[in-house]
Design a binder for these strands. Structure first.
Lengths: 324, 324
DNA sequence: GGGGAAACTGCAAACGGTTGCATGAACATC
DNA sequence: GATGTTCATGCAACCGTTTGCAGTTTCCCC
């Protein structure tokens, strides 16, 4: 059905190997011959068969991109940027969703292993041991996590967290609640560490509340604890949590930022529209950087190391001086 | 490096063809032999090579999913649902983003053609002629568009639009602005048609304004025309347009829903948080339905027809009776 | 106990490319 | 003019799996 290298060879009167070389090793074939081959290929509409090529070269030209939840607004900008960047070096990207389950993640990686040259794991839930084990089969680059000996891209929330606490301190807040996220999350660990240090530095009292589910439900469920803590400002694990809390507070008749100031993390599309002060995560840049590392790792085998990207506070209308 | 069928054959003392059959045609091999083969495969960690399999079966087990803009919040729930659904029948999904450009879309399809068993085109920008031409190479299923002779899934905004106009009419609005989207958009055509009919039915005056860019910028840019039209309520092409307009109106000191009522389309995550009345699009259901049609089309070759899904109005806080 | 069907299994040719090696021509070198 | 290079191309094996065909064994039935 489809036109193959053999058809092109026949049409241009050369051997298949010459056609192959005309495409993948131009310098090995006479320019005139090559022109004839290319011309024939074009009129026939020849497209190399990737599967066949993969079989002999052991390169599929495909990458895997594995995220916890495609519909979580944190991920799409990263996916978009990574995909677009991969296309520039003629790679296709499998995108898959683990639904936040480590089990699904492992199975996904295993099932993709024979089909990709490498994979991007974004905030994986897998144990370090398992990641190390699987990385024997497929080159990995990890985003927002730092397993030993694997190239990684980190969006370091610490810089943004420092700015956030400084911002709150300068508004006059003294009692700050920190809504923590999943224990295993690297971002959560950095956030907690940086917030603790910055609180001490500015003489603030930090109420750690959590761990919370990294969802709207997690945010609204945290409302009672937040109110009980006596905090006048809240730094939430991410925008979803912040927005869930926001909704719950408003439902209880409280004003934001009047009664309580609120800071999120991620700077999602929704945060922009809800006028939420938040810490911007460079998701698109991270996606591109991760693809760069991955392609480097694939072609040159050595560890390209770690890239750390800074974050910054975006001040909007959900923060103001405390009430009384 | 990797474990192949040959290793398994050797380990279990049978020919490679028997190993192959043990996996893909169980009934052709003696249960005991099969058990031995499976056991050997498991201890060796054998995983079939998809590329090799694709070469002889002409089935890759891969699907393509092509959308205009991954980061547009309309798409991720569809992508997520489609991907998850495809996984259930052991298919992997390439996700690609055309950045709204027809040219990129065509090239993407061509480059994927040899690697996928079929593709989902969501709201494609391509001409009908080109879609027909390309569909000779790859089985397509189209979402929110209706080219002749291709299976399609349609999220029919008409039902929701009728509910929206009825809602606005019952609140007492008489002058309604419709912010139209891209001319070529099937959704836009349905929206315009349904709004026109419903306006007539309820005795409303409909001001068609557009076409507008289907983005926040499009929405904010439309503000002057909306105000000049004298409308007291607006139905926007999608949530992004509605939210862009909302922001611009508030920046001008106008109240929503006080001075102007606002209805969007899509029911994105952001609309939920911004308390925007909107028309819910069944994106996840559409993703699943589209995968079903595609798999049907791939395995049985005949046209599985068209699936139409209804939409419904979700009333929130951005609509209220007109001011005066 | 001979014939035939049924159940397994092996053989080998595909599938569509890539690539190391061999071949031959053209050309330069001494 | 014999020798050695370089360049361009052909030949054929190989990548890992599937599958039509043929061979072998077992079993059934008359």
């Amino acid at each position: 059905m489809a036109v193959t290298i053999k058809d092109v060879a026949h049409a241009s009167g050369v051997h298949v190997s010459t056609v192959s070389r005309a495409f993948s090793a131009a310098h090995l074939v006479n320019p005139e011959t090559r022109a004839r081959v290319i011309a024939a290929a074009n009129t026939l509409g020849y497209r190399p068969n990737r599967a066949a090529r993969a079989l002999s070269t052991r390169r599929t030209g495909n990458l895997g991109l594995i995220v916890a939840d495609i519909a979580n607004p944190f991920f799409p900008p990263l996916i978009k940027a990574a995909q677009a960047h991969a296309r520039r070096s003629d790679h296709h990207v499998f995108v898959a969703d683990t639904d936040e389950q480590a089990r699904a993640e492992e199975e996904l990686i295993r099932s993709m292993a024979t089909q990709v040259d490498g994979a991007l794991l974004v905030a994986p839930r897998l144990s370090n041991r398992l990641i190390a084990e699987l990385s024997a089969d497929v080159p990995f680059v990890v985003v927002n996590r730092q397993p030993a000996n694997l190239p990684a891209v980190l969006m370091d929330v610490a810089s943004g967290a420092r700015q956030a606490l400084e911002h709150l301190a300068s508004l006059g807040h003294r009692e700050i609640a920190l809504l923590t996220g999943p224990r295993a999350s690297w971002t959560n660990q950095r956030l907690e560490g940086a917030a603790t240090d910055a609180a001490e530095h500015h003489g603030l009292h930090l109420h750690r509340l959590g761990p919370n589910q990294p969802t709207e439900e997690g945010g609204s469920a945290a409302a009672p604890d937040v109110l009980a803590s006596g905090a006048t400002a809240v730094l939430a694990y991410n925008d979803l949590v912040a927005l869930g809390l926001l909704q719950e507070l408003r439902a209880r008749g409280l004003a934001v930022p009047g009664d309580l100031s609120l800071v999120g993390v991620d700077n999602t599309h929704t945060a922009r529209h809800c006028d939420l002060t938040t810490i911007d995560m460079p998701t698109a840049a991270a996606g591109r950087a991760a693809i760069d590392l991955l392609l480097h790792r694939i072609t040159s085998e050595d560890d390209p190391g770690t890239v750390t990207l800074d974050t910054r506070l975006v001040v909007r209308g959900s923060t103001a001086p405390p009430a009384h």
